[in-house]
């Protein structure tokens, strides 16, 4: 009764990463999905339960391409609700780190630094909830080798907190709105309400 091990399975790879240990405990009750705001706020393909299922069913490429892998912001609303006590965002993070290892890129617009204006004050580093920003010595055209902020696109979740704290407006997430358009919109509305001065 001596069988050779059947090589490495995807699910074992996920389980080897801290956070992904309990992926196989999922019995597909769907609590996490109905707790999750991403699906309810307009991303119908987002489904953590299905991602866990994909991992269990060895669907490696599909899980790397799944929106769930990239859009989960680790808010952990699902974690306290899970009856099997699975740290779901931990599992998703494990899949994501495997995907990054396999040269996959995130499908979100991540934060970008304007290296010409960045003064490396470090406010964004403190504000970032994902610890995705670091101050790194970089060679910048016209400015020489200086310290500027640098974003790890694998960790950034595009919340924009960095752009709100930046005093030199040199970091931000490319979004459908800009600071200018928000202010302009506010102004137009106030004008329409009849402000004389």
């Amino acid at each position: 009764m001596n069988h050779e091990p059947i090589g490495s399975l995807f699910v074992d790879e996920v389980k080897a990463i801290p956070g992904g240990e309990f992926v196989e405990m999922c019995y597909s009750c769907g609590t996490c999905v109905s707790k999750c705001m991403i699906q309810q706020k307009g991303e119908p393909e987002f489904n953590p339960r299905r991602l866990l299922r994909m991992v269990m069913m060895e669907m490696k490429d599909e899980s790397f391409d799944s929106k769930t892998t990239w859009l989960c912001s680790a808010c952990d609303l699902c974690y306290p609700a899970c009856p099997q006590k699975i740290h779901i965002s931990g599992v998703i993070h494990a899949v994501k780190s495997l995907a990054v290892k396999n040269d996959k890129k995130t499908i979100q617009n991540t934060a970008v630094v304007d290296q010409q204006t960045c003064v490396a004050c470090g406010l964004c580093v403190e504000a970032c909830p994902y610890e995705a920003i670091k101050i790194i010595e970089t060679k910048v055209p016209y400015r020489g080798i200086i310290n500027v902020a640098s974003v790890d696109s694998g960790l950034c979740m595009a919340c924009g907190t960095c752009s709100a704290v930046c005093r030199s407006t040199s970091i931000g997430v490319p979004e459908e709105f800009t600071d200018e358009s928000v202010v302009e919109g506010l102004w137009t509305w106030l004008q329409s309400q009849g402000v004389e001065d």
């Binding site: 597909s28 009750c29 769907g30 609590t31 999905v33 109905s34 999750c36 699906q39 309810q40 119908p44 489904n47 339960r49 299905r50």
Partner: peptide, 12 residues
């Protein structure tokens, strides 16, 4: 009642 219909994969 908020729940996911597991068969449809949709939150109801």
């Amino acid at each position: 009642v908020h729940s996911e219909d597991v068969t449809l994969g949709k939150v109801m």
